[in-house]
Design a protein around this nucleic acid. Structure first.
Lengths: 173, 173
DNA sequence: TATTGTTATACTCTATAACTATA
DNA sequence: TATAGTTATAGAGTATAACAATA
């Protein structure tokens, strides 16, 4: 009874892949003998593969902080928007409120965030980073920024900017 | 006891987003008052957003065919590699064998594919499209190809090629 | 009447172990 | 001993409904 999820249609690539081809090219795959060339002409396929490649590195690098990508996003959003409410976090990160509850609770129990009464709305809570949370988020953000140059190691800074710019033009409504 | 999944860290965007910024730019978000500018400087964030934007359109366009992205990928792989085995499909699409079983069974029950004895290995099965499967896959592939120009409507053909080329350089090992 | 945070819950996707039959 | 396909099942992620407190 539920609309098909989009999220889980993106999975981590594991197998080897073959060389780049022009969009209309039809070529046989070398390593495994399986022809995947058509899929490689699709923007969605390439964007998904690239996103998962970056996220795989992200996962590994963030493991020492005990942060999943979504945790890093929540912490970063709170860091840059002190006093933000759960509802606003949900809207910004496209998380459903029931699914954020556990994450907030976990971050709270780890002593990384504090929930304070909202100044004007007694239903809501203002989210803030604790001193420990600030330190962790700062280091994690440094790691995330550093990750940029590592992931796009074959890309120049200019190419990386071009790539991100083109990507934004794809997803911007 | 399981390595953290990567797939579900990618979710469908729902809320509005703000204007593009240079990688180091720090700007306040306009619409909701929430600053998400830092996240927008990350390649992973932009790639994820773009991938999900494309997949969202993909889902809608493929709904008439009753195909999820993974179903389309499986059908397309079989179309371009008649006689491919389940194991090879798993390797090419990064699907775990137990999770492919249900998909293959479903496509078989829908009369879209046929499982024939493998010519040299009696453990394996060769996967083939039925006539109905060929028709469906052909139409679905046309839709997928058409989707390219629609999604990248603001991008020229050259920009689209550049984008896909840069993406491949990111995820290629 | 609408919204915030929350609980409960169901569905989907992803992952591991283990079995069978063949190689 | 290893591999192809399969079953069963556990875990993570994602979704909806509904509630109390407050706007």
């Amino acid at each position: 009874m539920t609309a098909p999820s989009v999220a889980n249609t993106l999975r981590r690539p594991r197998g080897p892949r073959k060389a780049a081809v022009a969009p209309e090219a039809v070529a046989a795959e070398a390593g495994t003998g399986i022809d995947t060339s058509y899929l490689e002409t699709l923007l969605g396929y390439n964007a998904r593969r690239a996103a998962l490649a970056v996220i795989t590195v992200f996962l590994r690098r963030m493991a020492p902080y005990g942060l999943r990508p979504v945790d890093f996003s929540v912490l970063t959003l709170i860091a840059h928007n002190p006093g933000i409410t759960s509802r606003q976090v949900c809207a910004a990160l496209d998380i459903l409120p029931p699914n954020l509850v556990g994450m907030i609770k976990s971050l709270d129990q780890r002593g990384l965030i504090e929930r304070r009464p909202h100044p004007t709305d007694r239903r809501a809570q203002g989210l803030h980073l604790s001193p420990a949370g600030k330190r962790l988020q700062k280091n994690a953000q440094l790691t995330a920024t550093q990750l940029e140059s590592d992931v796009g190691s074959r890309l120049s800074d200019e190419e990386l900017d071009t790539l991100k710019s083109l990507l934004r033009r794809v997803y911007r409504a």
